[in-house]
Design a protein around this nucleic acid. Structure first.
Lengths: 343, 343
DNA sequence: GTGAAAGCGCTAACAT
DNA sequence: ATGTTAGCGCTTTCAC
């Protein structure tokens, strides 16, 4: 048995038509007679034929490759995104090429551009914090590449961005803390260079203020979203003369660090201290006490991003979907936050 | 400014030579005059030219794409592997295409084959447990595709496999438990359909036996490597009339579950119960008490796998590296295991 | 040491 | 509604 991969020519010959016609049914372009189409499809199935992506790409200057650009330490997040994107990719005949990069590197933009050019990537999805780079977005736009950014702030046209409404989510958290009776509240923020960190801090602070509770400057500590920075921040906060009774951390990783520091200081969570995170990591449900946190529908967001970018690539004639771009995270209540214990 | 991507023709014209010669310096094939070569290289640099992967692939039936096939719930592991593979990919001019699949699905093999064919993937790296599929390996071999399997058991020729010596690692764990003074030992295994699970169980059991300690059947419970199955298994074990004083779980996820069950049963870890896992997850160092576990050098293993596969693809003339295929995991001692408390 | 020319498998003007 | 014919940008046999 000849194990050569069947080509479009084989299909054409076998079906007794020309390449062009086969190509037409492959791409749904142009009109083909009902009967011819059926026959061709039968042959395609019988031969187990699938068009070669490279040849196709070379001819149409497309690659059917989507790129994922990120520089994010959070593997769980990345994994969710990859799966979300693939949910659609596979279905639409695209493949996903991953490209971690160095957000801070001087040649980050050039590196990404090279990546896209060399493999003729049809479009890229960019994750935070890289998605916050104005330079990258501009360079991509200028070079005429398709991209979609995933972010926490609405800073691009709605066709090329998917936003999670962190501000609203954090507002929910603030209200929850208040409903538990806390007034001595603190926050460990993310790196203040990131928009998302600002967004969460401001949302939290403002919501508290609206209810008449002040988030004092001395109780705002900047973390780096890492476990270690969480440990340091927690120590600072828990050794304050006027110790807060509730701490909101910018992510679960740092919230987990707070739990550990509390333990070493013999402060019980949640009876003496409430703690909450952000992300809903695997960690959040495993750790003890389990973490009250905010869950972003990451996978769904990623699928949406993939949908937008494929839509843009394929220019479905109609304008690209620009209404649907906002997803809302929500509060997950677990063990680590509770009303103050009556003394 | 013409922003068209420069082609090999541009380079040839500019350098006053033929395509063929440019192609020669691009691929290091054939001989080119010293001077000509230098000149061509100068032009390439000046034009910022890089060969189009698709065209190149179409002509040479290569894609410069590596595939990663897996069906693994552990995002941390996947992430490490991806980074390890990319460490080399980028350097060698390859890109990484990810392809999660359903290990159990009836059409898994066909699906992977399709994936490779459609995108002309040059070679794939397969992660456990998919890497344990004999069917897939055989199908790939038969179709003439390059592959490297990452596994815990040595079941393929050494050119196409990278093995972590789980047996040796588990032996270390057994000895450690013994050195702590434990004799009432239990194990929560992984799914017994996986080679790795067997490997770890047998290694553990045998090592104990060598030192005269029997791992009783009643104290061997099969888990599914998930947190939930860990909870169930732990409950079984900790409610045994003759409760074990030390539990070794097939992964950190299940070890974390043991910690939680112990907590609810008011059994202190590690003074009343020692617990250990396998993987050295992010979880392992964050959880309290932190987990004694076994760390596999995953990233390094992945880089090695990438090296082997690229070597195979490029047929460096010399036989493919088949000596270097075994990596040794090692014991990480943390808080969750300790000598029995004197009563 | 170097060049001319024929494809790789597909798409897309341009017929018919 | 379908076929003809050129390429896409590169590699590669075969001459020179």
């Amino acid at each position: 048995m000849s194990d050569r991969k069947p080509t479009i020519n084989d299909v054409a010959r076998e079906a007794g038509v020309s390449k062009r016609t086969v190509s037409r049914v492959l791409n749904g372009s142009g009109s083909v007679g009902e009967k011819t189409r059926a026959e061709i499809q039968e042959v395609i199935a019988r031969l187990n034929f699938s068009p070669d992506k490279q040849a196709r790409g070379l001819a149409s200057s497309r690659s059917y490759l989507l790129g994922l650009i990120y520089d994010n330490p959070d593997a769980l997040y990345i994994d969710q995104v990859q799966r979300g994107v693939l949910d659609l990719c596979t279905q639409k005949g695209y493949e996903l090429v991953v490209h971690p990069c160095q957000y801070k590197a001087a040649d980050m933009v050039e590196d990404c551009l090279q990546f896209i050019r060399r493999s003729q990537i049809d479009g890229v999805i960019i994750l935070p914090p890289v998605s916050e780079s104005r330079d990258l977005a501009m360079a991509l736009r200028e070079a005429g590449h398709h991209y979609v950014r995933m972010a926490s702030v609405d800073f691009d046209d709605h066709a090329s961005i998917v936003v999670s409404d962190d501000r609203a989510a954090v507002r929910e958290m603030a209200r929850y803390f208040l409903s538990l009776g806390h007034t001595e509240i603190a926050m460990i923020t993310g790196p203040m260079g990131y928009h998302s960190s600002n967004e969460r801090l401001l949302g939290f602070k403002d919501s508290l203020a609206e209810q008449g509770v002040i988030l004092d400057e001395s109780r705002i500590v900047e973390g780096q979203n890492t476990y270690d920075s969480g440990l340091a921040s927690a120590r600072k906060l828990l050794n304050l003369p006027n110790r807060p009774t509730a701490i909101f951390a910018n992510n679960d990783e740092m919230a987990a660090a707070v739990l550990r520091v509390a333990r070493t200081l013999d402060i019980d969570v949640p009876t003496e201290l409430s703690v909450a995170g952000f992300d809903d990591n695997m960690l959040a449900s495993r750790i003890m006490p389990s973490l009250t946190t905010i869950q972003r529908p990451v996978r769904a967001m990623a699928t949406l991003a993939a949908e937008k970018i494929i839509q843009a690539i394929e220019q479905t004639g109609k304008d690209v979907n620009s209404d649907d771009f906002l997803v809302k995270p929500h509060l997950i209540i677990r063990e680590s936050a509770a009303p103050l214990k009556a003394r």
